[in-house]
Amino acid sequence: MIEAVMLWNEPNNKSHWDPVLDPDWFLFSEMVKDAGHAIRAVNPALPRVLGGISPIDPHFIRRMEGQGVLAAVDAVAVHGFPLDWNLWPIHAWPEKIEEIRAVTGLPVWVSEVGVSSFGAEEVQAWGCERTAELLKGRAPRIHWYSLYDLPREWEATTRHKEAEGSSYYRHFHMGLLRQDGTPKLALDAFARHAPDLGLCQWFHFEDHRLDEAVAWMRRLGVTYLRTGLSWADSFRPNALDWFDRQMEALADFDVTVTFCFTPEHRGIAPHHTSAPLVREEFAEFCAAMVRRYAPGQTVAADAGEIMLQGAL
């Protein structure tokens, strides 16, 4: 069910990793290395991707290499939103990718790219077309963020809030579909470039949009998707039932699963951005999810042998 795993999300962004608790990313580096090795032990063939960085910063990638992280992953990833949040023009996309290629020999994925319709739907539609023109053929994976607008009653995963003008509110307008499921102008633009473009769609716990999202992705010709399995959600009642339902619904797609979000009671601070109290627990979660949804050939063969012996 999984074609790749991503270890964390935007680790160099304070909305996803607390730099006060871990200013040198030492704890993060040790956590990711543990997780990378644990995943490799379960499924040696499963690609491991370092969580997409935002901002795109070659110095951060050099830091990760110096701290041994790149030896525990098979690719790195970047996130970019030049028409909404980044301080560079959309036409700089090729240069931004080359900045990262210049400091690592690993493949560079674009695991989130998007344009909000906050100002105008026409801007989003143009941005989708131009993004496809600039990125197709330059990265092994290009995940457009996202299929759905973020529901207004939900909170955006950011610490910035209203401190940066319209920035916070743009989070709610990134979808090709509105909150009620009706299409925006950019939907047709995206469809013209699928399956070269994939999607990034985060599903909340027991998300009511899951089945409808699958139907839309099939209709659009999407073949690959990035989503997440939340370490924090794994402590909810019936968590495995939800994880199973989500992964079964997405079984027809090539899925990159992002493992992230620290459970409040397992963090140094009670927040999803916190470094964990026991970093090995994140590795154990990652290994358990891979064992469940993308077991290696050895694990699968052992399971089959046990079943055969039981039948005899």
Score class of each variant (00 low, 15 high):
residue 176 L to Q: 07
residue 98 E to S: 03
residue 283 A to N: 05
residue 278 V to M: 07
residue 267 G to P: 09
residue 284 E to S: 06
residue 234 S to M: 10
residue 298 T to V: 14
residue 149 D to S: 06
residue 138 R to F: 04
residue 43 N to T: 10
residue 66 G to H: 06
residue 241 D to A: 13
residue 269 A to G: 06
residue 311 A to E: 13
residue 299 V to L: 15
residue 20 V to I: 13
residue 174 M to R: 10
residue 308 L to K: 13
residue 21 L to G: 15
residue 45 A to H: 14
residue 249 A to P: 00
residue 154 W to Y: 13
residue 153 E to Y: 11
residue 199 L to G: 05
residue 296 G to F: 01
residue 274 S to C: 06
residue 37 H to T: 12
residue 80 G to E: 07
residue 177 L to M: 08
residue 86 N to S: 12
residue 39 I to L: 00
residue 116 S to N: 10
residue 245 R to A: 14
residue 63 R to H: 10
residue 230 S to M: 04
residue 216 W to N: 00
residue 140 P to H: 07
residue 262 T to Y: 06
residue 227 T to L: 05
residue 180 D to Y: 02
residue 52 G to A: 13
residue 310 G to R: 10
residue 227 T to A: 09
residue 253 F to W: 08
residue 264 E to L: 08
residue 249 A to T: 00
residue 122 E to T: 11
residue 82 P to Q: 05
residue 213 A to E: 10
residue 254 D to K: 09
residue 104 T to M: 04
residue 60 F to D: 06
residue 263 P to I: 01
residue 159 R to H: 14
residue 29 S to L: 05
residue 279 R to K: 14
residue 44 P to S: 08
residue 228 G to K: 02
residue 214 V to R: 06
residue 122 E to N: 09
residue 271 H to T: 14
residue 216 W to Q: 03
residue 127 G to P: 08
residue 21 L to V: 07
residue 160 H to L: 14
residue 305 E to H: 07
residue 36 G to Q: 07
residue 52 G to K: 01
residue 125 A to N: 06
residue 96 K to S: 00
residue 160 H to Y: 12
